[in-house]
């Protein structure tokens, strides 16, 4: 079986879950899976204890998908919000946040480096 066909047979990757069909039209399945994993990782890093982590993770796993489905079915996700970008374009938020963090770290690191030298 070709790899593409094999991947598409997995429900979330193939985007073939009836309820989630409208969601996948806005957000590609891999983006949703990636964001979910990234958020879980971020919670693991940030949470002080297990209870804190489980609470955040449950909200993201149980409540947020329902909110997302409601949002996509009831809101115009492609309507421009700012500078030509709509809610559907929020797929780029995670990489952009990452880039801002890298820039911040670079500037801090440069400052430390110069202070060492001076």
């Amino acid at each position: 079986m070709p790899i593409g066909e094999l991947l598409n047979s997995v429900p979330i990757l193939g985007g073939n879950i009836g309820l989630l069909q409208p969601v996948f039209q806005i957000y590609p399945p891999l983006v949703l899976l990636g964001t979910y994993l990234a958020a879980t990782g971020a919670y693991l890093i940030a949470a002080d204890d297990l209870g804190n982590f489980v609470g955040l993770w449950l909200v993201m796993t149980v409540i947020y998908p329902l909110v997302l489905v409601w949002q996509i079915n009831n809101m115009d996700m492609t309507r421009e919000i700012i500078l030509g970008y709509s809610l559907a374009d929020s797929t780029i938020a995670l990489p952009l946040v990452l880039m801002f963090l890298v820039t911040y770290i670079l500037v801090q690191s440069l400052q430390d480096r110069f202070q060492e030298v001076a």
Partner: peptide, 16 residues
């Protein structure tokens, strides 16, 4: 958490 954050970011970028 860092491993999951990294893999998740990679999947998000590849998927987008």
């Amino acid at each position: 958490g860092a491993l999951m954050l990294g893999i998740g970011t990679g999947l998000t970028i590849w998927g987008a």
